[in-house]
Simulated scan of single mutants.
Amino acid sequence: MKRWIPSPPLSLGLFVVWLLLNQSLDAATLLLAAILALAVPLLTQSLRPATAKMRRPGLALRLCGVIAFDLVHSALTVARLLLTRRSARMEPHFVRVPLEMRDPNALAVLAMILCLTPGTAWGEISFDRSSLLIHVFDEDDEQAFIAMVKSRYERPLMEIFES
């Protein structure tokens, strides 16, 4: 079964979305939805990282709380900076963060965290996955930012995915 349907939730989602987009239940629409639901997961199977093994669910929940707090705090900070500073006084730049983690699932979660957080964006990761380039909206202390990324995100992600 796994050979023909490698990701049942993805297949089901594709099938339902196709039907909703077409707003029809005729035979041709159902057939095309079934073909897409089977073909897309098979064709994209090599693009998905290996199945993640979450080792510390309690830490993952705590990390979600940290992320939620950081998202709200960062959104308020960026809004305040945009409303109170002149653009000439803002100093956006890139920060290179050295990485210890190598797990592709942990790196994907880190990418989502950094892209969702207002004021930061994932720039690039080095070929050997030893460093990450992050665009920062406005940061005075580069070393403090690196320490924050490593302590608040990288260390917990390593414990969740790599320990």
Rank of each mutant, 00 (worst) to 15 (best):
R102Y: 01
I146C: 03
A111R: 13
C64G: 15
L71V: 13
L114R: 06
R85F: 00
L132R: 03
R102T: 07
L76W: 12
M101H: 01
L61D: 03
S130W: 00
A52Y: 00
L81W: 00
V95A: 08
M90I: 14
V78N: 05
S46R: 15
L47V: 07
L59M: 07
E91Y: 05
P92S: 06
T77P: 04
L83I: 09
M101A: 05
E100P: 01
M148L: 11
E100D: 12
A111K: 05
A39C: 12
M101W: 00
M148N: 12
F127Q: 07
I113F: 13
M101C: 03
K150H: 06
D140A: 15
A88K: 14
D138G: 10
L114M: 11
A52S: 05
L43Q: 12
F127E: 10
H135Y: 03
V149L: 03
D140Y: 09
W122T: 08
V95M: 04
G58Y: 04
T51L: 13
S130I: 02
T44H: 02
D138N: 14
H73N: 15
V109F: 03
V72D: 05
V72F: 11
E142Q: 13
A88E: 15
V40T: 11
G119R: 02
D141W: 05
L116T: 15
V72R: 09
M148V: 01
V72L: 15
L38I: 09
P118G: 01
V66Q: 11
L36P: 08
P92N: 08
L47D: 08
V40G: 04
V40Q: 11
L110N: 01
L38E: 09
A121H: 05
L61K: 04
A75Q: 14
P118A: 01
T117S: 05
M90P: 13
V40K: 10
S74E: 07
A37W: 02
Q45E: 15
S87F: 04
P104Q: 05
D140L: 13
G58V: 13
R86I: 00
N105M: 05
I67H: 00
A37D: 11
V97I: 14
A144L: 05
A60C: 10
L110V: 09
D70M: 06
E139R: 04
T120W: 01
L59Y: 04
R89P: 02
Q143N: 12
L114Q: 07
D103R: 06
V136E: 06
H135T: 08
V95G: 07
L83V: 07
W122H: 02
L116W: 06
L43S: 14
G58W: 11
W122M: 06
P98E: 02
R86M: 01
I125T: 07
V78K: 06
A121G: 00
L82W: 04
I35R: 07
D103S: 11
K53F: 03
M101G: 11
A144E: 10
F127C: 00
L114G: 07
D128K: 04
M101Y: 03
T77N: 15
R89E: 14
A52H: 02
T84N: 03
P118F: 00
L76N: 13
V136C: 12
P49A: 07
V95F: 06
M54L: 15
V136K: 00
T44G: 12
D103H: 09
L43W: 13
I125E: 04
H73S: 15
I146V: 14
R62I: 12
F69K: 14
I125A: 05
A121T: 11
Q143Y: 03
A75R: 14
E142S: 08
M148D: 10
M148H: 11
A144V: 03
